[in-house]
Structures are given as C-alpha cells and as structure tokens.
C-alpha cells in the first residue's frame, strides 16, 4: 500500500481533472457527431464509414487527458515509485491536469458541433468530405495547446524526470 502524501494527492486530483474534463468534452463532442452520423446513415447507408471517421475525431481529447493522467499517476508515486512530497509540485500537477482537461472540454465540444454539422453537409453534398474534415480538425488545436502545456508543466515542474 502506497503512503499518500499531500503532493501525491494533489497529483491524483490533477489526473482526475485531466481525464474527467477531457473525457466530458470528448464524450459530448462524440455524442453530437454520432447523433448526426446516425441520422445520415438512416438516410444513406454509404455514410457509415464517413460517420465513424467524424465520430472518432472527437476521441483525441480523451486520449490526451488519459495520457496526462497516466503520466501523473506514474510519476506521483501512486502506481509505484517515488511519491511527490513537495506540495508546490503537487499544485503544478493540478495545473497540468487542468490544462489538458479544460482545453479538451472546449475542444471536444467545438469539434463535436463542427463534426455533426459536417456530416449533415456531406450527406447533402458528397464533395464536402475533405472540407468537412479540415473544419472539424480546426478545434483540435486547443486540445493540443492544453496537452503541450501540460507536458511542459510536468517537465519543468519536476514531475517528469
């Protein structure tokens, strides 16, 4: 049984925020894209593959949050190894989790709206596929910013390494 110190507990909170909020954004986004896809497939069976692609796009935010959460758990001593005995480092871990979590929330919701809308555009006009993918990929950038900042916080906040 690992002895949980405050620093490690804070890192655990950070991991929860990372995967929780990123997963929430991703889930809402994927729900919207999938709702649009089901409607499209009901009218045109050929839309199934494209519906899956647009629905899967919104998965990435949850993956970023999941990765950061795993790193926090591993390097905070919760999954073995050295615990974080410095409260300040624990707060940095919360910051890293919040960065990827909230960025993933906004990005996932935004991407879901665009992906759901793109599905509607493609089922009406097949030529919209490439443009739909480009527009749907745009909200991904916010999640990438959050992910990068989370990594930088962990590297320079003495969590990684």
């Amino acid at each position: 049984m690992v002895e949980i110190v405050l620093g490690t507990a804070l890192a655990a909170v950070g991991a929860g925020i990372a995967v929780g909020f990123a997963g929430l954004g991703s889930g809402l986004g994927q729900g919207m894209a999938a709702a649009g896809s089901v409607g499209a497939v009901a009218e045109d069976g050929d839309m199934f593959a494209r519906g899956i692609i647009f629905s899967a796009l919104c998965e990435t935010q949850a993956i970023y949050g999941f990765l950061i959460a795993i790193l926090l758990l591993v390097f905070s001593g919760l999954l073995g190894g050295k615990p974080i005995d410095n409260v300040a480092v624990g707060i940095v871990a919360v910051g890293a989790g919040a960065a990827v979590g909230f960025a993933g929330l906004g990005s996932g919701m935004g991407q879901g709206i665009v992906a759901g809308s793109s599905i509607g555009a493609i089922v009406e006009n097949d030529d919209m596929f490439a443009r739909g993918i480009i527009f749907s990929a745009l909200p991904e950038t916010q999640a990438i910013y959050g992910f990068l900042i989370a990594i930088l916080l962990m590297v320079f906040g003495n969590i990684l390494g």
């Binding site: 809402l28 896809s37 009218e43 599905i119 089922v123």
Partner: peptide, 30 residues
C-alpha cells in the same frame, strides 16, 4: 469547474436534439 461545464454545455443542449434530424433532412435536401 462544474459551473464552467454547466454554462458551456447549455448551447450544446440546445443543438443536440437537432443534429440527428438535420442530417436526415439534409440527406433528402441533397
């Protein structure tokens, strides 16, 4: 955080019920 989630989700809740019907009618519009 919870307040942010509730506020940010509200527009989504307005849009959500329309996404499925929109795809269906746009297929027919095409």
């Amino acid at each position: 955080g919870a307040v942010i989630v509730v506020v940010a989700s509200r527009p989504i809740l307005d849009i959500y019920p329309y996404l499925n019907p929109i795809a269906k009618v746009r297929a027919r519009k095409g």
